[in-house]
Amino acid sequence: MANLLRKKENNTFIIGSPYFIWVVIFIVVPLIMIFYYGLIDRNGNFTLENIAAIAQPVHLKALRLALWLGVIATVICLIIAYPLAYILSQTSINRYGFVVFLFILPMWMNFLLRTLAWQTLLEKTGVINNILVFLRLPPLNIINTPAAIVLGMVYNFLPFMVLPIYNSLLKIDPNIINAARDLGANSVKVLQKIIFPLSLPGVISGITMVFIPALTTFVISNLLGGSKILLIGNVIEEEFTHAGNWHLGSGLSIVLMLFIIVNMIISSIFDKTGEGNFL
């Protein structure tokens, strides 16, 4: 062990053994378990039925709705987050810690309570409607609709869009922008040709970090959708808690993972460093 930090394969396994053992037992094996359960039936025979079950109308509807709401939430997050990240990156003080702090801080209030608070705000006689009525505006009736679920998604996952974009914008060397300006580019051209392309890894990483939790949520749809609207996450959760068909639940999880893998492949093509830009 001449040097702990130099590249050397021989002792690496011994040094890293706690980590390797942990990763194998708690990350690799559990994933294999899902595939194992998903590919057998109750009697232990191999079957593709649990995966094919996604084609059943109930499941397909839940998957479609989850994809659709996930896409809408991701697009809204992107539209809100990009200008915000840009403005924050332009502030002269550039206090990175403080900006991250403001976005991480809400996490210290329980995620379920924060989402439930939207019930209080959105209800028919809730805070927002009281204000609207007071201002003689038409009331907003979105609680227990897909719109409320999208709002919950945007609310919960917006920081995951803002932080990577903000981070990638901060990394842009101001000299590149100055050079473009010296060469006669106007603000729109600079944004289009310099800033946006260089912030793309952050955008892609943000899209992944919003889309995947939005696609797979069962909590937000449960709390704000009034438990009548089923997303694919709700279906899987039901199978594992109440319905008790783990094989079906695992099969549907495999389908869900396919979407996640596709998303990850797309993002790794754009984000070559492979590190993400969350922090």
Binding site: I25, F26, V29, P30, L31, M33, I34, Y37, T208, I212, P213, L215, T216, T217, F218, G233, I236, E237, F240, W246, G249, S250, S253, L256, M257, I260, M264
Partner: peptide, 15 residues
């Protein structure tokens, strides 16, 4: 970190 939390939760439960 990248996988859906529900899948991570289920996989650990099965383990």
């Amino acid at each position: 970190m990248l996988n859906a939390e529900i899948v991570t939760g289920i996989s650990l439960m099965l383990l």
